[in-house]
Write a protein that binds this DNA or RNA. Structure first.
Length: 559
RNA sequence: UGGGGUAUAGCCAAGUGGUAAGGCAGCGGUUUCUGGUACCGCCAUUCCCAGGUUCGAAUCCUGGUACCCCAGCCA
């Protein structure tokens, strides 16, 4: 499977191509700027594919820059995880990893520059007072009483803020723009706030930290970023982004372009909410296979290719409020694994079948393809003995009309082996089915039986050779399409209680050799991935990535 | 009742004055030792609504409507 990250056109790619053709842009430089305050999720994957994809398409580079301006929320552990996720997705950033904190000295010098230009001032108002002075959406704000301090005083105050002379919240540095602007972001935005916190990169060097607005565009400029792609909610910030670039002696003029963020059915993509799920122990960490994080999806069995394909499928636009059908994600992974996952048989709801005309010492081994359409995947060995396991769902005592599987007196093909007939149903005292007695038609290996058609094919595992496995059946974490649409209902109310069910099954012998993160199609069931944590501990655990399409279930539903 | 945005099928999405791509989902069929896959076919007389311009409009103009974002010393 190839990645089409180069081929899906969108309004940003079109625009850049026009700029290049017009000669207004030479080399394209983009950046992916996560804040290290959580793990990357599928929404970030969209941004990563866009930013790295554009750089690749136009022969430029994409920087990885941590937007680390808020030490209170950030951690080194997140930085490590984010780097690993970007690499796993298959992208390589240009040069070293960057940090906004690399530019703190320059940013500080530029803050002093603004002060000297009478374009910034130190404000003593409290946070609440600043809010009051700011006005509302429909009323203009009022200037702070501290707005007209001298440059000398401002410079002195800022320096003393920097060295820790003041308490947190006591003062801020603000840009002097327009308190009456209809765009609230221009009503003297905060440039620096005091934080007596140790920073994961700069340690205790700084007692003040720049705001996002003061750091982002200038960081772009320093790095020579040409196109700064971000989500729609930053659109109102663009005038401010441009204001800094116009009022500071920056070395380049990046441009901000906004696109709509991803919303996915049945999931939440908000770092805050994902962190809540982790912190409250609702899921088993950031990489729980139910999480829409890159690492969770990886553990679930999604491939990097499938995630990139998904991002290509959904496109990039400015249309808001869109909600992508999670079936698209399922399609992306199924189509990858259909081609690339070796096949295996695994019984999840074991029902014992005794093959009455197979001798006790029968020991036959079939050599079957690792993949029905890929010879390069070789063959695997499939032993057959007198007792086998089949899936309980593949037997019905009183089958409906279109049931092609096993039933009393009926025949079915054991996948890759013989046709068997169910002769007897053995029940226990309370009437539960204990085992089936079946007979093998030995004249059906690799050919259809004489004079009749056997339509059904079921999967099975030789009981004597079965490998016990734990199978984790994952389903959507939420049971409603839009868990966080409702403002009055907590999204946790919509949790799906059955998002995980654990089952003990029997796998064919080839599964004993599985390595962490190996992916298989369990034939007729779905795609599964060897859990990397469990396997590292020597436990055989397979995570269900996604089920196979099930038209039988659909038929049953219709009645 | 401020400012900034967005509206094309159930969902995502092309389209930029020449007569509505593609994908997902769905529905029918063929093939099949996976009720999977693959393959074939169907699925918008119409582009939020109403007017207007034009030989011709999803595209241009006018006026509406709906929805999203912004009042963090978060990003």
């Amino acid at each position: 499977m190839t990645t089409e990250s180069n081929s899906a056109p969108n309004f940003i790619r079109n625009q850049i191509r026009e700029e290049i053709e017009a000669g207004s842009v030479d080399t394209v430089v983009t950046r992916f700027p996560p804040e290290p305050n959580g793990f990357l999720h599928i929404g970030h994957a969209k941004s990563i594919c866009l930013n790295f994809g554009i750089a690749e398409q136009f022969g430029g580079g994409c920087n990885l820059r941590f937007d680390d301006t808020n030490p209170a929320k950030e951690e080194q552990a997140y930085i490590d995880a984010i780097k690993a996720d970007v690499e796993w997705l298959g992208f390589q950033w240009a040069g070293n990893v960057r940090y906004a904190s690399d530019y703190f000295d320059q940013l500080y010098a530029w803050a002093q520059h603004l002060i000297r230009e009478d374009k910034a001032y130190v404000d003593d108002l409290s946070a609440e007072e600043i809010r009051e002075y700011r006005g509302t959406l429909t009323e203009p704000g009022r200037p702070s009483p501290y707005r007209d301090r001298s440059a000398e005083e401002n410079l002195d105050l800022l320096e003393r803020m920097r060295t820790g002379e003041f308490a947190e919240g006591e003062k801020v540095l603000r840009a002097k723009i327009d308190m009456a602007s209809p765009n609230i972001n221009l009503r003297d935005p905060v440039l620096y706030r005091i934080r007596h916190a140790s920073h994961h990169q700069t340690g205790d060097k700084w007692k003040i930290y720049p705001s996002y607005d003061f750091a982002h565009g200038q960081s772009d400029a320093i790095e020579g970023v040409t196109h700064s792609l971000c989500t729609l909610e930053f659109e109102d910030h663009r005038p401010l982004y441009d204001w800094f670039l116009e009022n500071l002696p920056v070395p380049a003029r990046p441009r901000q372009i906004e696109f709509a963020r991803l919303n996915l059915d049945y999931t939440v993509t908000s770092k805050r909410k994902l962190k809540l799920l982790v912190d409250q122990g609702i899921v088993d960490g950031w990489d729980d296979p139910r999480m829409p994080t890159i690492s969770g999806m990886r553990r679930r069995g999604y491939t990097a290719n499938s995630i990139r394909k998904f991002c290509d499928m959904i496109g990039v636009t400015r249309a808001e409020g869109g909600m992508v059908d999670i079936a698209m994600l399922y399609h992306a992974i199924r189509s990858d694994l259909e081609d690339n996952a070796p096949r295996a048989m695994c019984v999840l709801k074991p029902l014992k079948v005794v093959l009455t005309n197979v001798p006790e010492d029968h020991d036959e081994v079939f050599e079957v393809p690792g993949h029905p359409a890929r010879d390069d995947m070789g063959v695997r060995k499939l032993p057959l003995s007198r007792e086998i396991w089949i899936d309980a769902d593949d037997f019905m005592e009183e089958p409906p009309k279109k049931f092609f599987r096993l039933a009393p007196g009926k025949e079915v093909r054991l996948r890759n082996a013989y046709v068997i007939r169910c002769d007897e149903v053995i029940k226990n005292a309370s009437g539960d089915i204990e085992e089936l007695r079946c007979s093998v038609d030995f004249d059906t290996l690799g050919k259809n039986p004489e004079g009749r058609k056997v339509k059904g094919v079921i999967h099975w595992v030789s009981a004597a050779h079965a490998v016990p496995v734990e199978v984790r059946l994952y389903d959507n974490l939420f049971q409603v399409e839009a868990p966080d649409r409702d403002r009055d209902v907590d999204f946790l109310e919509h949790l799906n209680e059955d998002s995980l069910s654990v089952v003990e099954g029997y796998g064919e012998p080839s599964l004993a050799e599985a390595n962490p993160e190996d992916r298989f199609q369990f034939e007729r069931v779905g795609y599964f991935c060897a859990d990397r944590h469990a396997l590292a501990e020597g436990k055989r655990v397979f995570n269900r990535t996604v089920g196979l399409k099930d038209t039988w279930a659909k038929i049953q539903k219709k009645g």
